[in-house]
Protein backbone atom coordinates (compact mmCIF):
# COMPACT_ATOMS: atom_id res chain seq x y z
CA UNK A 1 0.00 0.00 0.00
CA UNK A 2 1.33 3.46 -0.78
CA UNK A 3 -0.41 6.37 0.89
CA UNK A 4 0.89 9.90 1.39
CA UNK A 5 2.87 9.18 4.54
CA UNK A 6 5.07 6.44 3.05
CA UNK A 7 6.06 8.32 -0.09
CA UNK A 8 7.04 11.92 0.48
CA UNK A 9 9.85 13.26 -1.64
CA UNK A 10 11.07 11.17 -4.52
CA UNK A 11 9.42 7.94 -3.39
CA UNK A 12 11.65 7.41 -0.34
CA UNK A 13 9.77 6.29 2.75
CA UNK A 14 9.41 8.97 5.38
CA UNK A 15 11.60 7.59 8.20
CA UNK A 16 9.36 9.00 10.94
CA UNK A 17 6.20 7.48 9.55
CA UNK A 18 8.03 4.27 8.89
CA UNK A 19 9.43 4.04 12.42
CA UNK A 20 6.08 5.03 13.94
CA UNK A 21 4.20 2.41 11.98
CA UNK A 22 6.82 -0.22 12.79
CA UNK A 23 6.58 0.53 16.50
CA UNK A 24 2.78 0.38 16.48
CA UNK A 25 2.88 -2.90 14.59
CA UNK A 26 5.38 -4.31 17.09
CA UNK A 27 3.22 -3.38 20.08
CA UNK A 28 0.17 -4.80 18.34
CA UNK A 29 2.01 -8.03 17.72
CA UNK A 30 3.25 -8.26 21.32
CA UNK A 31 -0.30 -7.65 22.53
CA UNK A 32 -1.79 -10.35 20.31
CA UNK A 33 0.95 -12.83 21.24
CA UNK A 34 0.36 -12.11 24.95
CA UNK A 35 -3.38 -12.67 24.69
CA UNK A 36 -2.80 -15.85 22.72
CA UNK A 37 -0.27 -17.07 25.31
CA UNK A 38 -2.60 -16.27 28.17
CA UNK A 39 -5.48 -18.16 26.62
CA UNK A 40 -3.27 -21.14 25.81
CA UNK A 41 -1.81 -21.27 29.33
CA UNK A 42 -5.27 -20.99 30.85
CA UNK A 43 -6.55 -23.85 28.71
CA UNK A 44 -3.47 -25.89 29.55
CA UNK A 45 -3.78 -25.41 33.31
CA UNK A 46 -7.52 -25.94 33.75
CA UNK A 47 -9.62 -29.05 33.05
CA UNK A 48 -10.91 -30.63 30.92
CA UNK A 49 -7.64 -31.89 29.49
CA UNK A 50 -7.50 -33.71 26.21
CA UNK A 51 -5.31 -36.59 27.32
CA UNK A 52 -5.31 -38.40 23.99
CA UNK A 53 -4.00 -35.29 22.23
CA UNK A 54 -1.53 -34.63 25.05
CA UNK A 55 -0.06 -38.13 24.78
CA UNK A 56 0.20 -37.82 20.99
CA UNK A 57 2.10 -34.54 21.38
CA UNK A 58 4.40 -35.90 24.09
CA UNK A 59 5.46 -38.61 21.65
CA UNK A 60 5.76 -36.18 18.72
CA UNK A 61 7.59 -33.43 20.60
CA UNK A 62 9.52 -35.38 23.23
CA UNK A 63 10.24 -38.87 21.99
CA UNK A 64 11.03 -38.04 18.37
CA UNK A 65 13.39 -35.24 19.44
CA UNK A 66 15.68 -37.64 21.30
CA UNK A 67 18.06 -38.34 18.37
CA UNK A 68 18.61 -34.70 17.44
CA UNK A 69 19.04 -33.67 21.07
CA UNK A 70 21.43 -36.52 21.83
CA UNK A 71 23.59 -35.87 18.78
CA UNK A 72 23.76 -32.12 19.37
CA UNK A 73 24.65 -32.63 23.02
CA UNK A 74 27.49 -35.07 22.41
CA UNK A 75 29.15 -32.74 19.88
CA UNK A 76 28.73 -29.65 22.04
CA UNK A 77 30.17 -31.45 25.06
CA UNK A 78 33.12 -32.69 23.03
CA UNK A 79 33.86 -29.29 21.48
CA UNK A 80 33.50 -27.60 24.86
CA UNK A 81 36.06 -29.94 26.47
CA UNK A 82 38.46 -29.36 23.63
CA UNK A 83 38.19 -25.57 23.81
CA UNK A 84 38.45 -25.38 27.59
CA UNK A 85 41.50 -27.59 27.44
CA UNK A 86 43.14 -25.32 24.85
CA UNK A 87 42.18 -22.15 26.75
CA UNK A 88 43.03 -23.56 30.17
CA UNK A 89 46.39 -24.72 28.85
CA UNK A 90 47.54 -21.10 28.67
CA UNK A 91 47.30 -20.76 32.49
CA UNK A 92 48.22 -24.33 33.24
CA UNK A 93 44.58 -24.88 34.23
CA UNK A 94 43.70 -27.79 31.99
CA UNK A 95 42.75 -29.94 35.00
CA UNK A 96 39.54 -27.88 35.30
CA UNK A 97 38.10 -29.31 32.09
CA UNK A 98 35.66 -31.71 33.85
CA UNK A 99 34.44 -28.98 36.23
CA UNK A 100 33.81 -26.38 33.56
CA UNK A 101 32.25 -28.88 31.17
CA UNK A 102 29.73 -30.09 33.71
CA UNK A 103 28.94 -26.56 34.86
CA UNK A 104 28.60 -25.20 31.33
CA UNK A 105 26.45 -28.08 30.16
CA UNK A 106 24.06 -28.24 33.11
CA UNK A 107 23.54 -24.52 33.70
CA UNK A 108 23.67 -23.31 30.13
CA UNK A 109 24.37 -25.41 27.09
CA UNK A 110 22.18 -28.45 27.71
CA UNK A 111 19.10 -26.25 27.88
CA UNK A 112 20.00 -23.73 25.15
CA UNK A 113 21.10 -26.35 22.64
CA UNK A 114 17.96 -28.38 23.28
CA UNK A 115 15.86 -25.21 23.05
CA UNK A 116 17.47 -24.13 19.78
CA UNK A 117 17.26 -27.55 18.16
CA UNK A 118 13.60 -27.83 19.11
CA UNK A 119 12.93 -24.30 17.85
CA UNK A 120 13.86 -25.80 14.51
CA UNK A 121 12.35 -29.25 14.69
CA UNK A 122 9.29 -28.68 16.83
CA UNK A 123 8.30 -25.01 16.40
CA UNK A 124 8.48 -25.05 12.62
CA UNK A 125 6.64 -28.37 12.55
CA UNK A 126 3.83 -27.10 14.76
CA UNK A 127 3.52 -23.87 12.75
CA UNK A 128 3.34 -25.76 9.47
CA UNK A 129 0.79 -28.23 10.80
CA UNK A 130 -1.47 -25.61 12.41
CA UNK A 131 -0.98 -23.30 9.41
CA UNK A 132 -2.09 -26.02 7.02
CA UNK A 133 -5.14 -26.63 9.21
CA UNK A 134 -5.91 -22.92 9.20
CA UNK A 135 -5.77 -22.49 5.44
CA UNK A 136 -7.79 -25.64 4.75
CA UNK A 137 -10.54 -24.39 7.12
CA UNK A 138 -9.93 -27.22 9.60
CA UNK A 139 -9.67 -24.74 12.48
CA UNK A 140 -13.03 -23.24 11.50
CA UNK A 141 -14.40 -26.78 11.26
CA UNK A 142 -13.18 -27.50 14.81
CA UNK A 143 -15.08 -24.48 16.09
CA UNK A 144 -18.31 -25.37 14.29
CA UNK A 145 -18.05 -28.83 15.85
CA UNK A 146 -17.84 -27.20 19.30
CA UNK A 147 -14.18 -28.03 19.83
CA UNK A 148 -12.12 -25.10 21.11
CA UNK A 149 -8.81 -24.91 19.22
CA UNK A 150 -7.12 -23.64 22.38
CA UNK A 151 -8.11 -26.81 24.23
CA UNK A 152 -7.92 -29.21 21.33
CA UNK A 153 -4.80 -27.98 19.50
CA UNK A 154 -2.72 -25.44 21.39
CA UNK A 155 -2.90 -26.50 25.05
CA UNK A 156 -1.78 -30.12 24.41
CA UNK A 157 1.26 -28.89 22.46
CA UNK A 158 2.05 -26.30 25.15
CA UNK A 159 1.80 -28.84 27.97
CA UNK A 160 3.67 -31.54 26.07
CA UNK A 161 6.57 -29.19 25.32
CA UNK A 162 6.71 -27.80 28.88
CA UNK A 163 6.69 -31.33 30.32
CA UNK A 164 9.11 -33.04 27.94
CA UNK A 165 11.73 -30.31 27.55
CA UNK A 166 13.13 -30.85 31.09
CA UNK A 167 13.46 -34.57 30.38
CA UNK A 168 15.19 -33.89 27.09
CA UNK A 169 17.51 -31.41 28.80
CA UNK A 170 18.34 -33.94 31.50
CA UNK A 171 19.29 -36.40 28.77
CA UNK A 172 21.24 -33.68 26.93
CA UNK A 173 23.12 -32.94 30.18
CA UNK A 174 24.14 -36.56 30.60
CA UNK A 175 25.12 -37.06 26.97
CA UNK A 176 26.88 -33.68 26.80
CA UNK A 177 29.01 -34.51 29.82
CA UNK A 178 29.75 -37.88 28.24
CA UNK A 179 30.87 -36.10 25.07
CA UNK A 180 33.33 -34.05 27.10
CA UNK A 181 34.54 -37.17 28.88
CA UNK A 182 35.04 -39.02 25.58
CA UNK A 183 37.24 -36.32 24.10
CA UNK A 184 39.12 -35.78 27.34
CA UNK A 185 39.91 -39.46 27.85
CA UNK A 186 40.52 -40.51 24.25
CA UNK A 187 42.08 -37.37 22.75
CA UNK A 188 43.45 -35.34 25.66
CA UNK A 189 44.87 -38.16 27.80
CA UNK A 190 42.82 -37.54 30.93
CA UNK A 191 42.51 -40.40 33.37
CA UNK A 192 38.95 -41.68 33.10
CA UNK A 193 38.40 -42.33 36.82
CA UNK A 194 39.77 -38.95 37.87
CA UNK A 195 37.71 -37.16 35.22
CA UNK A 196 34.49 -38.82 36.40
CA UNK A 197 35.30 -38.20 40.08
CA UNK A 198 36.00 -34.50 39.40
CA UNK A 199 32.75 -34.22 37.46
CA UNK A 200 30.66 -35.83 40.19
CA UNK A 201 32.35 -33.85 42.98
CA UNK A 202 31.81 -30.55 41.21
CA UNK A 203 28.23 -31.22 40.12
CA UNK A 204 25.56 -29.58 42.28
CA UNK A 205 21.83 -30.09 42.29
CA UNK A 206 21.35 -26.31 41.90
CA UNK A 207 23.16 -26.28 38.55
CA UNK A 208 20.97 -29.06 37.21
CA UNK A 209 17.79 -27.47 38.52
CA UNK A 210 18.71 -24.15 36.88
CA UNK A 211 18.92 -25.93 33.52
CA UNK A 212 15.65 -27.76 34.07
CA UNK A 213 13.71 -24.62 35.00
CA UNK A 214 15.03 -22.94 31.87
CA UNK A 215 13.86 -25.98 29.94
CA UNK A 216 10.26 -25.59 31.13
CA UNK A 217 10.22 -21.96 29.95
CA UNK A 218 11.86 -22.85 26.63
CA UNK A 219 9.25 -25.55 26.10
CA UNK A 220 6.48 -23.00 26.54
CA UNK A 221 8.15 -20.56 24.15
CA UNK A 222 8.69 -23.25 21.53
CA UNK A 223 5.09 -24.47 21.52
CA UNK A 224 3.55 -21.00 21.74
CA UNK A 225 5.48 -19.57 18.83
CA UNK A 226 4.57 -22.51 16.62
CA UNK A 227 0.88 -22.39 17.52
CA UNK A 228 0.66 -18.60 17.29
CA UNK A 229 2.30 -18.20 13.90
CA UNK A 230 0.43 -21.21 12.52
CA UNK A 231 -2.93 -19.92 13.72
CA UNK A 232 -2.50 -16.63 11.86
CA UNK A 233 -0.99 -18.15 8.76
CA UNK A 234 -2.34 -16.73 5.51
CA UNK A 235 -3.63 -18.81 2.63
CA UNK A 236 -1.45 -20.75 0.25
CA UNK A 237 1.79 -22.70 0.47
CA UNK A 238 3.82 -19.48 0.80
CA UNK A 239 1.67 -18.39 3.76
CA UNK A 240 2.31 -21.65 5.58
CA UNK A 241 6.01 -21.59 4.71
CA UNK A 242 6.26 -18.03 6.00
CA UNK A 243 4.53 -18.99 9.23
CA UNK A 244 7.01 -21.84 9.73
CA UNK A 245 10.02 -19.59 9.12
CA UNK A 246 8.74 -16.75 11.30
CA UNK A 247 7.88 -19.09 14.14
CA UNK A 248 11.27 -20.76 14.05
CA UNK A 249 13.26 -17.53 14.01
CA UNK A 250 11.01 -16.05 16.71
CA UNK A 251 11.34 -19.09 18.94
CA UNK A 252 15.13 -19.24 18.56
CA UNK A 253 15.58 -15.57 19.44
CA UNK A 254 13.11 -15.79 22.34
CA UNK A 255 14.85 -18.91 23.71
CA UNK A 256 18.18 -17.06 23.78
CA UNK A 257 16.63 -13.92 25.26
CA UNK A 258 14.78 -15.92 27.91
CA UNK A 259 18.01 -17.78 28.65
CA UNK A 260 19.81 -14.52 29.37
CA UNK A 261 16.99 -13.18 31.54
CA UNK A 262 16.73 -16.43 33.49
CA UNK A 263 20.52 -16.63 33.94
CA UNK A 264 20.51 -13.11 35.35
CA UNK A 265 17.67 -14.04 37.66
CA UNK A 266 19.39 -17.17 38.98
CA UNK A 267 22.65 -15.32 39.55
CA UNK A 268 20.75 -12.60 41.41
CA UNK A 269 19.07 -15.04 43.78
CA UNK A 270 22.37 -16.82 44.25
CA UNK A 271 21.84 -20.24 42.71
Amino acid sequence: MSDASTTKSGGFPNPLAWTGRGTLALFGEIGRLSIFSGRTALSALTPPWNLAQLWKQIIAIGFYSLPVVGLSAVFIGAALALNIYTGGNRFGAEQFVPNIVVLGITRELGATITGLMLAGRVTAGIAAEIGAMKVTEQIDALKTLSANPFRYLYAPRFLAAALTLPLLVLIADIIGVMGGWLVSVYALDFDSTTYIRNTVDFLTLDDVVVGLIKAVIFGMVIALMGCYQGSKSSAGATGVGRAATLSMVGAAVLVLAANYILSTFFVQIGI
Binding site: M133, T136, Q138, A141, L142
Partner: peptide
Protein backbone atom coordinates in the same frame (compact mmCIF):
# COMPACT_ATOMS: atom_id res chain seq x y z
CA UNK B 1 -21.55 -27.02 7.99
CA UNK B 2 -20.03 -28.38 4.81
CA UNK B 3 -16.90 -26.35 4.10
CA UNK B 4 -15.81 -25.37 0.63
CA UNK B 5 -12.62 -27.43 0.96
CA UNK B 6 -14.26 -30.21 2.95
CA UNK B 7 -12.02 -29.32 5.91
CA UNK B 8 -11.68 -32.93 7.01
CA UNK B 9 -9.13 -33.43 9.79
Amino acid sequence: MLFQSGALF
